[in-house]
């Protein structure tokens, strides 16, 4: 559905059902250079099982109007404006990669509005290598290729995935290629610059799930495991064999972990 957030046209996928703010709401927040479609095999299930779903396109991504937001903090504030626009008081936030940082930051800023956070493919802090940042700035195709190779475990790189006939590595690079010039550097730079992790963690009041891929080369599970200790109420689920693109490589395992956590 379309919403107006900060006077800008904003898109959120509602999982194939009309959005109803009276139901408990789950907000799905994608990572760098992506859009709502990365959540297809998680968000649609929740929308048909008693929840209302907003799988957002962040400003300047997918179908949402720009401008891009340059920091994780600004994106977290925007997310709260989105909840206002949708008429939602509080929601569970499910974020992937950059989206996990946005979820964390939002939960720290507005604890009364965030019921739970699920941080998928996360690391706090989330440093981005100089080589990747440089490529994102000067040669996007090169940066996208690097990310696509680093984002997949065996299921992504070789195949044998859950969706019949979908070649994950091919679909992954095509989704990144859809983004407008400048999106990738903006997003990676925002991840790299986000320094409020420890402070934010201390302010989070709600339960947190860290959902990690054992073969994640973008956000190493070791970093996330260390960070989990700084949250008051956290649990970790590690998906064996998955790379960074967990929702695509192991959609059922991600969904089952989210169901367990959100319906708890």
């Amino acid at each position: 559905m379309e919403l107006t957030v900060d006077q800008k046209k904003t898109y959120a996928y509602t999982g194939g059902r009309p959005f109803n703010p009276e139901l408990p709401t789950v907000v799905f927040i994608h990572g760098a250079q992506c859009d709502h479609s990365v959540w297809g095999l998680q968000s649609r299930y929740f929308a048909h099982h008693g929840f209302s779903v907003l799988a957002v396109d962040l400003p300047g991504h997918g179908r949402s109007e720009g401008p891009l937001l340059p920091t994780v903090e600004r994106m977290a504030d925007w997310l709260m404006q989105l909840l206002d626009a949708a008429g939602v008081d509080d929601a569970a936030l499910v974020g992937h990669s950059m989206g996990s940082l946005i979820s964390l930051e939002a939960a720290s800023r507005r604890p009364e509005r965030v019921a739970r956070i699920a941080l998928i493919g996360t690391a706090v802090p989330m440093p981005v290598s100089e080589a990747l940042l440089d490529a994102a700035k000067n040669d996007e195709a090169k940066a996208e290729a690097m990310i696509n190779v680093w984002s997949h475990g065996a299921r992504g790189a070789i195949g044998g995935g859950t969706v019949p006939g979908l070649w994950l590595a091919g679909a992954g690079i095509r989704l990144m290629e859809r983004a407008a010039p400048g999106v990738l550097f903006n997003d990676l730079n925002a991840c790299n610059a986000y320094a409020r992790g420890p402070e934010a963690a201390a302010q989070v009041q709600c339960p947190a799930l860290l959902l990690l891929g054992s073969r994640d080369q973008m956000t190493s599970p070791r970093g996330a495991q260390k960070f989990a200790g700084s949250l008051k109420d956290s649990s970790i689920v590690t998906i064996e064999g998955s790379g960074h693109a967990l929702m695509a490589e192991y959609p059922d395992a991600v969904l089952d972990a989210l169901r367990e956590f959100i319906q708890r």
Binding site: D139, A141, E144, V149, A157, I173
Partner: peptide, 8 residues
């Protein structure tokens, strides 16, 4: 040439 986006 475009950089190779696949591992193999």
């Amino acid at each position: 040439s475009k950089p190779k986006p696949f591992a193999f």
